[in-house]
């Protein structure tokens, strides 16, 4: 799979990662003003994971996300302008302003939703995968979860179900080293989340989450296997978040300079740009043009979000129930 990236594919990968980064960096600034309601959990630093995985997915494949879901949404094709409005609680948002950061969902693009329930995505994605299997389609489901969720019963149950029914599911354990403020090497009873796959008889693979190409390649094999009826895979992506668990988290549990060192030495965007330009596949000018376009898009999304109307009180009960 590593050689299958076209020039257009490389440009798309960079644009997606840059959009996520710009979106999150902007929220980091704007949230501090106190104008944004609710909580936000930022995905900055983890962009290679969502991007490397979702680039293999079609519109009718499903993903289930986490409370740190902005990156998954953008990578799966949710409109960032609608997302920004949603986070600002506006009626023009992806969920009409009633969901906020932790409940952004867009079924039209296969995004089942960010999810405030830690480990809540596993059973949901098994549902879509079972539907896919019963319908005879080759759609797959991807369940993103974190190292904290890796200890939840829902995730174990979902892995068991996916294994016994041989469902087309890719369990993506994004191990950023901390479940809120608890280090994963304190709370996870094995060195690698991937090790747990063997208990369910499925392959367990580790990918470097700072390296887009490593994630893209491993995810490509896992998704191909699922589409071909090979069953589920557990893919552990080792990465790090650049900000706190939530905005406002003082992060006293992290070593001084930990994030700065990662930004300077391992950053996924930096590594990606260095590699594709040193080989002449893309030019710095092309990447910088994307940077400008993305910044313009995110700036505009914030201006629009601020100006857009709030939901009306009479819309409170709308969209609460779904008719079958």
């Amino acid at each position: 799979m590593s050689s299958s990236l076209t020039r257009e594919g490389l440009l798309q990968a960079y644009r997606t990662m840059r959009t996520i980064r710009e979106f999150e960096e902007r929220l980091h600034v704007d949230f501090a003003t106190g104008e944004i309601p609710g909580f936000v959990h930022l995905y900055a630093g983890e962009e290679a994971s969502a991007t490397g995985i979702c680039m293999h997915l079609n519109r009718d494949d499903y993903i289930a996300s986490t409370h740190r879901g902005h990156g998954h949404c953008i990578a799966k094709g949710v409109d960032p302008v609608g997302m920004m409005a949603e986070i600002w609680g506006k009626a023009t948002g992806t969920c009409k302003g009633k969901g906020g950061s932790m409940h952004i969902a867009d079924l039209d693009v296969g995004m089942l939703g960010a999810n405030g329930i830690v480990g809540g995505g596993g059973p949901l994605i098994c549902g879509t995968a079972l539907a896919s299997k019963l319908r005879g389609s080759n759609n797959v489901g991807v369940c993103f979860f974190g190292d904290g969720a890796s200890n939840q019963g829902t995730i174990f149950e979902a892995m068991n179900l996916a294994a016994v029914w041989k469902l087309p599911v890719i369990f993506v354990g994004e191990n950023n080293g901390y479940a809120e403020a608890t280090a994963s090497n304190f709370s996870v009873a094995c060195e690698n989340i991937a090790d747990r796959a063997s208990a369910f008889g499925m392959p367990g693979v580790i990918a470097d989450g700072f390296d887009f190409f490593a994630v893209h390649e491993a995810a490509g094999e896992a998704i191909k296997r699922a589409r071909e009826g090979g069953g589920p895979t557990l893919l552990e992506v080792k990465l790090s978040r650049y900000y706190g668990h939530f905005e406002g988290d003082q992060q006293t549990y992290r070593a001084p300079g930990e994030v700065q060192k990662l930004r300077e030495t391992k950053d996924c965007l930096m590594q990606f740009a260095r590699r594709v330009t040193s080989r002449g596949e893309l030019t710095m000018a092309e990447l910088e043009a994307i940077d400008v376009e993305v910044k313009t898009l995110i700036d505009a999304s914030v201006v629009k979000a601020k100006a857009d109307p709030l939901p009306k009180p009479e819309d409170l009960m709308a969209d609460v129930y779904v008719s079958y």
Binding site: N192, A194, V205
Partner: peptide, 18 residues
């Protein structure tokens, strides 16, 4: 960390438990 690479997907390599 040994024994957890992509060969679990591309071949029939097994996981060696820690």
């Amino acid at each position: 960390a040994s024994g957890r690479d992509i060969r679990r997907l591309t071949s029939r390599a097994s996981v060696f438990p820690n």
